[in-house]
Nucleic acid binder design. Sequence first.
DNA 1: AGACTCATGTAATTCGTTACATGATTCC
DNA 2: GGAATCATGTAACGAATTACATGAGTCT
Lengths: 244, 244
Amino acid sequence: MSLKHALLGFINYGPMTGYELKKFFDTSVAHFWNAELSQIYPALKAMESEGLVEMKVEVQEDRPNRKVYSITEPGRRELLGWLAKPSEREQVREPILIKVFFGSSLSKQELISVLQNCADETRTALTYLQHAHQFVDKFVESIGLEHEALFWQLTIDCGLKVHRAELDWTEEAIQKITAADDSIFENERHGYEGVNDIRSAMEALDRVKSLMPGALSGADTYLHSATSPAEQPAAKAKAKVAGR
Amino acid sequence: MSLKHALLGFINYGPMTGYELKKFFDTSVAHFWNAELSQIYPALKAMESEGLVEMKVEVQEDRPNRKVYSITEPGRRELLGWLAKPSEREQVREPILIKVFFGSSLSKQELISVLQNCADETRTALTYLQHAHQFVDKFVESIGLEHEALFWQLTIDCGLKVHRAELDWTEEAIQKITAADDSIFENERHGYEGVNDIRSAMEALDRVKSLMPGALSGADTYLHSATSPAEQPAAKAKAKVAGR
DNA sequence: AGACTCATGTAATTCGTTACATGATTCC
DNA sequence: GGAATCATGTAACGAATTACATGAGTCT
């Protein structure tokens, strides 16, 4: 669970409230991690009962009281341990790729506008990240946290690179689709009746699989392979080695 | 909810069972969408009761009966409607970027090995996708579905481009970190006491924000902006225009 | 007058993963 | 003899989003 560790990371900068944590999230890691207040408050409570943080109430007259959380020694240890551990990857989920995958059901124009829309959003994201880069520069200068700048900027660089690649792909995809023969679209209206027999398709799958031993063995392996030996209890031996 | 639509997409190829759907998922869209059987079966049941698919039991002697689902007219309409609609983006969550963001707490060596590990995983994913590309070629040839090849390959191309960008970033990050001054690491052991005062940091944030009006306004905007006018009930007017 | 900021939460719901349950057959 | 394939599910749990609730103070 990364949320707790992200919270710990911020609280490690200095004691703060849930409300302030939300602000930090929104102005710094929003492009790769979101957290709602309704998630932050219970998380803090849980972390307190686990002894990772301590809470002190700051009484206020005119506004609601503040609950200020600070990190404890076990909390700091937990944070450092997690930071140094190899990263679990989150399962990718890209609705746009589902649309492209089944694109033969759409008209050429429909598919292109879906992609166009996608490209526009990516451009917006890129602009945002470029601003964010400048923002970090100014912020770091304003408060004197030059030692953090490298790390913060790196996360933005990652977003920029990945989004540029996405945009690149989207534009290329639009070109390829534009250039494609009309007959591959709107399959239903072209008398295309789907795969006549699913079972023969499945057999074809198996045939090709056996032609390429190991090729797709990674399907389930390559994603969740935070395979530090400690976490892979040898007893289970569930690894599907399939052909290697 | 994209899962239902992905299922519809496959069932649109031809009638099939939950078990077969899982196989198709694993050999075709696994790199951008995962689905467990325990999720597929209830989803199919729900879709049946919504009238999007129809089910027929195929009795078998030696093995458990098969429940074969086929798409209905409303189901096909639902699928086509969803495919043509601009795509919702899923919120990105990248634990690795949290680690980099708080990288100043680690030693240089620790951070580098986390990234090294990440690079290795990305390389594995790239290899997988290259195999997948060949796999699709052979499969398409074997069963004669040339009209689908373009779409299927495009989804793999996307994965390849994005992962190459990720790898690129990771390697660059490792270089930058290697080159960085040692003093920015293991901040706690360098007498770094965090941000002395969170409140002054928050003020600095606000100051820089007002210097760059609109710069970070996109934080919440740029992600979930599947802003087809129909879905944005003007009545709410919740848009945080903040400075523009 | 209406919206936004500060500051806390709870409850409901959705989406997804992991674990558990069954049971014959077939492959090594 | 043990594992994998075929074929269906349920139950528990976890993470995250959305909606709902409260209420004073400030900004436009």
